[in-house]
Design a protein around this nucleic acid. Structure first.
Lengths: 134, 134
DNA sequence: ATAGGGGTTCCTGTAACTGGAAGGTCAAGA
DNA sequence: TCTTGACCTTCCAGTTACAGGAACCCCTAT
């Protein structure tokens, strides 16, 4: 199967699949015309990577997870450690975004959003609010 | 004041301040020795940018917000529109991260995380779960 | 003179691709 | 046979918002 077929199956852009080959995540065979030829194992690998990426794992995480997947003697603890670390990062990001959301939400709510120039959002951005201690 | 002083005041790295000058967000004067010389207006601008960045606004958003700040005839609606758009992006990101968190949380919970090789996390990544329709 | 702690520019690298140019390949149709 | 169109190839540049580091200049104190 050619790259276009694989793109349809895995729902990864062909560009992305070429990139994954570039960085050594997959290693499809080549036909005489230099076209990449993918087998079932390649498809499975790319699916695996796609799903890991959609869970937010970095490319290097994906590489590590793939290696663990292919090591039938791995300890599940090794996999879980990667997952837990990633979960912690996700939690941090969620917390940061929620803090932004709250702060900006307050500013935005207090802004009339009309034709007048008075704008609490700009005022809020223009002063260093030192609500904490003094 | 030199760049180091401004870095301390605004809590932005000197590298970042130079970068902001590169892309035209600020335009400090220069001394004879080529050192950047910042005035109060520069400091205020950088503080403004820093606070906007900490709320997650992109650099281009910051540029637009600064322009609006300096346009005393702006309509607050223009500012609010940028803020609301950004809030919507934040909400999308939070939702995405929460979905990841949930999915990965389930996988991770079901993994023993011990010396044995059996790992629901890897199994989950290796199959395309088609829970939705058929 | 020297040491240190500033400052300067310029180049490279980051993450994970995406877009586009220039060109080869293949199957179908006139 | 020629052409059209959809494939495929490689390679280079751009994205975001900086950070790291090299090579070098400036200033002050000792």
């Amino acid at each position: 199967m050619n790259i276009g077929d694989i793109a349809r199956i895995t729902k990864l852009p062909a560009k992305t699949i070429r990139y994954y080959e570039d960085i050594g995540l997959v290693n499809p065979a080549r036909d005489d015309n230099a076209y990449r030829r993918f087998n079932d194992s390649d498809v499975h690998k790319l699916g695996f990577i796609g799903r890991a990426r959609s869970l937010g794992f970095t490319i290097e995480d994906c590489r590590a997870l793939l290696a663990l997947y292919e090591d039938k003697d791995r300890a599940s603890a090794d996999v879980k450690q990667i997952a837990q670390h990633h979960l912690a990062l996700i939690d941090v990001k969620i917390a940061e975004l929620k803090a932004m959301r709250t702060a900006l939400g307050h500013l935005s709510e207090s802004c009339a959003g009309d034709h007048r120039p008075d704008c609490p959002i700009l005022e809020g951005l223009s002063v260093s609010s030192q609500t904490k201690s003094g």
